[in-house]
């Protein structure tokens, strides 16, 4: 079920502009909250592009997982860590930014040349379209069974690990002796904390 050619090109153009514009916003805007919302814009326009590529299931998964889970998670993280703080200026940071921008343009030029010059072996068969979900299911339970099952272990471990790291340890204050203050740190003593002292003084 392909849309007409003209409509496709127009919607591709709109989605591409939307996506690249939001992506620039994500990396360039000063306020990280705006970046997070623009990231949702990137994800949504990406899902539109997937629809153009005849992949309705993945488009839905993109919205559900990226916008519904990852982006919400990022917003929560921003809420939890967002202290209104201006980063201390680092001298000559613009040199680094310009240099990085040049390198990135160079990489883009390289990748672009590669994309344009490579004769891709395009097949002319009709895309599976609506049957894609059946096809994906078949893949999951035949030739991609191993990564499918391994992913379940990965998710279990990521769940446990993220809970362990993000959970607040409520140490009973009363029983805390002076020597126990660093009970949950590495057994090695810190080498020197000169740098911490300096950075603390610059924050406050």
């Amino acid at each position: 079920m392909n849309l007409a050619e003209g409509v496709q090109i127009v919607s591709f153009g709109i989605l591409a502009v939307m996506m690249l514009g939001s992506a620039f916003g994500v990396v360039l805007l000063g306020n990280v909250v705006y970046s997070a919302f623009l990231l949702a814009g990137v994800f949504i326009s990406m899902s539109g592009l997937y629809l153009l590529l005849n992949a309705d299931f993945v488009a839905a998964a993109q919205i559900l997982i990226y916008v519904g889970a990852v982006n919400v998670l990022i917003l929560f993280a921003i809420m939890l860590v967002n202290k209104r703080q201006d980063f201390v200026m680092v001298p000559r940071i613009w040199i680094r930014q310009v240099a990085t921008a040049l390198v990135c343009v160079g990489i883009f030029a390289l990748l672009g040349t590669m994309v344009v010059t490579t004769p891709w072996a395009i097949v002319t068969t009709m895309p599976v379209g609506d049957a894609s979900i059946v096809k994906i299911g078949l893949h999951f339970f035949s030739d991609f069974l191993l990564p499918f099952e391994l992913a379940s272990m990965l998710l279990l471990m990521a769940l446990i690990g993220a809970v362990v790291l993000a959970r607040r340890e409520f140490l009973p204050e009363a029983t805390l002796e002076p020597g126990d203050a660093d009970a949950l740190t590495l057994p090695e003593r810190p080498r020197e904390l000169l740098t911490t002292g300096r950075s603390d003084s610059t924050i406050q």
Partner: peptide, 28 residues
């Protein structure tokens, strides 16, 4: 490729978690 990627990430993500396991220590 798919199982290379999934197993590589299983190894990597667990390594990140192990590295930060002593979460009270700023160095970790």
């Amino acid at each position: 490729l798919v199982s290379v990627y999934v197993s590589l990430e299983t190894l990597s993500i667990s390594s990140y978690l192990l590295t930060g396991y002593t979460k009270r220590d700023p160095r970790s």
